[in-house]
């Protein structure tokens, strides 16, 4: 790990000021991803700004929804009684990710800003456009089993690793940020970006900005939801494919559908066309297959991850069936019903 300066502000304004326009400065909260990246010399910050003392660790009622402070830990969020009751999709997605130790440390804001777990991004001996723009993508034509099938570019096929963010995408959360130009709110769908020709940039956060909260709207889809995560181990592994499905039903007719995928793209992959297709249709396997086909119509395999396309198709159908039946996937008993 390189040497760095360390500052510990007590207010958001102090934190933003400490970051300033210094491209080598980094905020640190849980540290579970940043310290790991520093140990691999992927990140070499000149200054760490310890934001753990900022007053951003509360979950508050707001406009019928909840405002989640950026420093609320993943564990505190997943086990909060209001989240479990009103947004169980979010609680389940969080509990599907990482380990208990990591969830106890990792923050809400940090979860949004975690970097890809692409092997080549971590390996400083190999070219990587995300780590060193312009050097090329080692994953394309390399060991690409875990990589993206949707929204890739010729410059990067990395995936966003978060489970929590897949649920936040489906729930239409809003990310509130503060920066030198003031405060603004970013719709979740616009927070993360696709790699395009600038894969070094994961998000649309402007330089100098800090996440202060993630706001949930009132609709929580508590009646019909599931988070179905498929991976190489039953626990403590990143998703090969995951599905956040949420429905509102009138009898057996779909009134509203939300559908987001993890493990398949550079950002949580929400497809509003597939959601629109489901609206007004009966909650049947046939409808769900049509939605899955639509989501995966543009899917593009790499050399060894083509299995993800069929896996995602089946996971979408199964996820929507679980949501419709009101039988969400258990995050401890991993049998898939």
């Amino acid at each position: 790990m390189n040497r760095f300066d360390y500052v510990r502000p007590s207010t958001v304004a102090e934190a933003v000021q400490a970051l300033g326009s210094d491209p080598a400065a980094r905020f640190i909260a849980g540290g579970t991803n940043l310290i790991d990246l520093m140990k691999y010399d992927v990140e070499r910050p000149g200054k760490l700004i310890d934001i753990t003392r900022l007053p951003l660790d509360k979950i508050e009622e707001r406009d019928g929804g909840l405002r989640i402070g950026a420093l609320v830990t993943n564990a505190a969020l997943a086990y909060d009684a209001r989240i479990r009751e009103r947004y169980p999709l979010l609680a389940d997605a969080i509990l599907a990710g990482a380990s208990a130790q990591l969830r106890n440390a990792a923050s809400t804001g940090g979860n949004l800003l975690q970097r890809t777990r692409c092997y080549y991004f971590y390996d400083t001996a190999t070219p990587c456009n995300k780590r060193e723009p312009g050097t090329g993508c080692s994953a394309i034509g390399g060991v690409d089993r875990i990589h993206a099938i949707l929204g890739t570019s010729e410059h990067c096929i990395a995936t966003h690793p978060s489970d929590m963010c897949v649920a936040l995408a489906a729930l239409e959360a809003t990310v509130r940020v503060s920066g030198p130009q003031g405060d603004r709110a970013i719709p979740f769908a616009e927070f993360h970006r696709l790699p395009g020709d600038d894969p070094a940039k994961d998000t649309n956060l402007a330089p100098g900005e800090i996440i202060v909260s993630v706001d949930l709207p009132a609709r929580g889809f508590a009646g019909h939801h599931t988070y179905l995560k498929l991976r190489d181990r039953l626990s403590y592994a990143f998703a090969l494919v995951s599905v956040a499905a949420a429905l509102e039903l009138d009898g057996r007719t779909i009134r509203t559908a939300r559908l987001a995928l993890g493990g398949v793209a550079h950002k949580p992959w929400r497809n509003t066309d597939a959601e629109a297709l489901l609206q007004g249709r009966p909650a049947t396997r046939e409808s769900f297959k049509a939605a899955a086909d639509l989501v995966l119509r543009e899917a593009k395999p790499q050399s060894t991850n083509g299995f993800k396309i069929e896996l995602a198709r089946r996971a979408i159908v199964r996820g929507l069936e679980q949501a419709a039946a009101g039988t969400p996937q258990s995050q401890s008993d991993k049998r898939i019903q």
Binding site: Y6, I28, G31, T32, I35, D36, L48, D50, T52, A100, Q101, L102, N104, A105
Partner: peptide
């Protein structure tokens, strides 16, 4: 009282 990975935590924090 909360379990964490001490390898991913800076002592100063």
């Amino acid at each position: 009282g909360t379990r964490i990975n001490s390898c991913l935590t800076l002592a100063v924090m």
